[in-house]
Design a protein around this nucleic acid. Structure first.
Ligand SMILES: NC(=O)c1ccc[n+]([C@@H]2O[C@H](COP(=O)([O-])OP(=O)(O)OC[C@H]3O[C@@H](n4cnc5c(N)ncnc54)[C@H](O)[C@@H]3O)[C@@H](O)[C@H]2O)c1
Ligand SMILES: NC(=O)c1ccc[n+]([C@@H]2O[C@H](COP(=O)([O-])OP(=O)(O)OC[C@H]3O[C@@H](n4cnc5c(N)ncnc54)[C@H](O)[C@@H]3O)[C@@H](O)[C@H]2O)c1
Lengths: 217, 217
DNA sequence: CGATTCATGTGCATTATTTCACAATATTAG
DNA sequence: CTAATATTGTGAAATAATGCACATGAATCG
């Protein structure tokens, strides 16, 4: 019985997480995996794995486990990664280049179909991946023409909010923002922020507690 | 009264988050901010802001708010970002280069003092930031010599676990891993994983629910 | 075929986190 | 000085997420 009425957000993140080792396991070894094994690979509790999956259906067989191939297909269906998504990226500095050149995205169905920058020296340059850097003012036109659904922002912070507005205005439905500020979007556009420094700050907080021999932190 | 006995992990992440707008506010405008304003800028509940801060002391003045300069200093003290940290990075591909060349890290006190790769064509190359790419086999020696505390991993997945072991073995106390696998460390070494695709998968899950007009997701 | 083993799916207790709501304290106006 | 207003710090309530523990069904063995 599927009961998608009240799914914890962490569950969604973990589903993506589970799919990583599953993909690797597909390439060899037994065709079935237990919640215990999978949990071990992902560093979570086995009951957690079972509960997460049970929100969406009964994918396992009691006494046996989960058929890896099937499970992966189910997870991809749930996450909607069983189709291709068209993305554009704005801000072709070091990070922007690094993202569009990364093979993993294409492999997972995330297709960068346009790249924008405001720097006239960069506009027109062709990238190894085949994309040509377009001027910022063509965002609206190309988002519509190419049916771009997701925008990735890799500009400096000061430009991020303006770019967000241009993108959402052009019809992009979701934004992944790498600039270390909290951008605001209209209702019609969802946003995720990625901030590496927050992760680092987390690490050093815990490190410092360790050094000081504190129990918590 | 400071009671650091039971601090929620999300609190630590939010502290880092709060410091971003505070830094910006330092550069102009009123010297004091209310929990409500700060909460607004960070997209959280005002009571959350107050409670998060109250775990570590009484930094505000009732009826008035928080002195921005002081608050920032307190947060930096808590997170241990009021000192410099020495890092090294392993895997000087696109992402690795992008990280070491990024000014924000230095600005926040995160100093990359060594860069490693296994590719003989890359070893010896000097980067714009001044670092020279060192061979992987020098990790142990340089970590000790330079007192490196944190290791950043930007190698392909297949190398990440081995690199983790080399780093923790060499005495690194914390690892920030960008390869999309869950690396395991001994007790003496803490680890944070950053996986952009998980964020994307989150976005498309929610997007798909929106398209389908589902209430939840 | 019955007994044994294995591993899922899930109700429920536990633990963690967020939010409310208000007493306490500071400031401002009259 | 008193009243009105602002905003913190916090106990208690509400909400969210996790993990235990076990009934349930499948597979295997003798
Ligand atoms: N490089 C990293 O490793 C890293 C890490 C964490 C966060 N970030 C953040 O990601 C963002 C990009 O980082 P980077 O290192 O690539 O910076 P960068 O300076 O190399 O690149 C920024 C690019 O954005 C372009 N740009 C500026 N304004 C624009 C606008 N209005 N429209 C379109 N393009 C515009 C610039 O021309 C430039 O090409 C920054 O906000 C940075 O803080 C980067
Ligand atoms: N580029 C991105 O935007 C991006 C996004 C998400 C995740 N990642 C992950 O980050 C990692 C790096 O990405 P990238 O795009 O820079 O890849 P890349 O292939 O450009 O760079 C990888 C580098 O690691 C080096 N390397 C390989 N094995 C090594 C070893 N044992 N010791 C030291 N160095 C070694 C290679 O020589 C190469 O220089 C990958 O795991 C990738 O999946 C990258």
């Amino acid at each position: 019985m599927t009961k998608e009425s009240k799914i914890p957000n962490p569950t969604i993140e973990r589903l993506a997480f589970y799919s990583r080792p599953l993909e690797a396991l597909l390439k060899g070894g037994p065709p079935v995996i237990s919640s215990e094994k999978l949990a071990g690979l992902c560093g979570v509790n086995p009951a957690q794995v079972r509960k997460d999956l049970a929100y969406f259906g009964e994918f396992g067989v009691r006494g046996v486990g989960y058929e890896i191939r099937d499970l992966l297909k189910e997870i991809k269906g749930i996450l909607a990664t069983d189709r291709e998504w068209t993305l554009c990226i704005v801000g072709m500095g070091n990070l922007g280049i690094s993202l569009v050149e990364n093979e993993n995205f294409k492999k997972r169905g995330y297709l960068f179909v346009a790249a924008f920058d405001s720097d006239t020296r960069k506009i027109g340059r062709q990238l190894p991946c085949g994309l040509t850097i377009e001027p910022e003012r063509k965002i609206r036109e190309l988002v519509r023409e190419l049916g771009i659904e997701i925008g990735v922002i890799t500009t400096p912070s000061r430009a991020a909010q303006r770019v967000t507005e241009i993108l959402s205005d052009a019809g992009v439905k979701a934004i992944l923002n790498f600039a270390p500020i909290q951008v605001r979007t209209p209702e019609s556009c969802i946003v995720e922020n990625v901030d590496f420094s927050v992760k680092l700050e987390n690490l050093v907080y815990h490190l410092e507690r360790l050094y000081k021999g504190k129990k918590n932190g």
